[in-house]
Design a protein around this nucleic acid. Sequence first.
DNA 1: TTGACAAGCGTATAAAATACACATATAATG
DNA 2: CATTATATGTGTATTTTATACGCTTGTCAA
Lengths: 224, 224
Amino acid sequence: MDVKNKRYKGQGIHVITAIFTVEQGITKVLLIKRKNEPFLGDWVLTGGALYNDEDLEDGARREIFDKTGITDIDITQFKTFGRVDRSPVMRMIAVGFFGVIDSKRVKVLRETESTTNADWFPIDKIPPLGYDHEEILTEALKELQKRIVNSNILKSLFPDGVTMPELQKVYEAILNKKFDRRNFRKKMLSLNLIEDTNKSEQFEGNRPAKIYKFKKKIEDKNIF
Amino acid sequence: MDVKNKRYKGQGIHVITAIFTVEQGITKVLLIKRKNEPFLGDWVLTGGALYNDEDLEDGARREIFDKTGITDIDITQFKTFGRVDRSPVMRMIAVGFFGVIDSKRVKVLRETESTTNADWFPIDKIPPLGYDHEEILTEALKELQKRIVNSNILKSLFPDGVTMPELQKVYEAILNKKFDRRNFRKKMLSLNLIEDTNKSEQFEGNRPAKIYKFKKKIEDKNIF
DNA sequence: TTGACAAGCGTATAAAATACACATATAATG
DNA sequence: CATTATATGTGTATTTTATACGCTTGTCAA
């Protein structure tokens, strides 16, 4: 029993979140720079060790707040990573989340106890990352792309509402694909994720765009 | 630092798998009965503690083999469960998997060090389960239903090939829904998951059904 | 007013999902 | 050996959804 116990002694849990944003049609992810070993000086995704007294999602949110000052972000758990050697210190597994947020809301990119700074990186210009965070990031982006249809993941990106052209630009950036203006509108409205506010954008030179808001509830639609 | 370290000391990792089968149109799940505390005498899903020297999926498969004798099962990771109080002993999180298998392949439902016996339960007649396994089971079934289309999750159920009517019965059991024979066939063939073998079933009284086989590779199809 | 511009609205066509008729292969029957 | 029963396999018409693209509308600037 002693021998056996050793086999699962000294395990730990990371909660890691890939925080995405879209700026001028470019999809970016938030990275922070480590100040301590292991992986001192390396860029990594937001995250850290889960505390014993908090649930997974709460831990992920606490880490986000600690290291970036961001609150009120919707995050989605998508996969858990557990390669034996993913951490050089002890056996750690990482519960992976992703979220999308308006980068303008991130005012404080703080220096913390364990990080020197934070910054947004375009997803096609990612530096080498510590731990297995490159793998986590790759899969997070894939999941984001899969789940962006039929969910209100983008809610945190548009806390004050969004216009169709804005929304389309974000979809096009994340999915790396162009859509027809008119069909995009029809599709979005049929998905039943957003609703009309009776407001319009103040804009220059052309017809102002209607402002929509994401609904609260998410409806799962079954295929087949 | 000492105080802080205590906050994430003594954590452990479960790997839990909901193993489903379909018998005579009834979807069933494999449960095992615990022989030790905590939850002594309670039914639970297959699983246990992850060892330090094994990856998540390997650990889940080892637990399946240890407690049921089943090898060669395809399993899919779907969610990680981490409620603070999900284990009364220490802080444990559970990485959840599901899989589908032909119950006829399960010959040995062994008594092990930690379990007295194992049995298949129809999913609408589940006894009270230990830990948070009722929640895990519910979500596993939901994920199975979501992912059964467009994946070869059912491969382990039909190692020797499958006919269209057989396959349809399984889909109908898992999705709890009836399909039109002819449209089901068209849909399945268009999904490109199975391929024709040039064999047919030996059957009585009516036209014999063609035998198909699941392909090896899984192709992700993008919606939108 | 008019032109430029981008948003909004509508319609025709193509593709996919659904409903349902017909043909075929086996075993049992007279 | 044709006939019938049964469940499989194949085909076609209809409906729904997705895609392609024309036209209209609201704002600013000239």
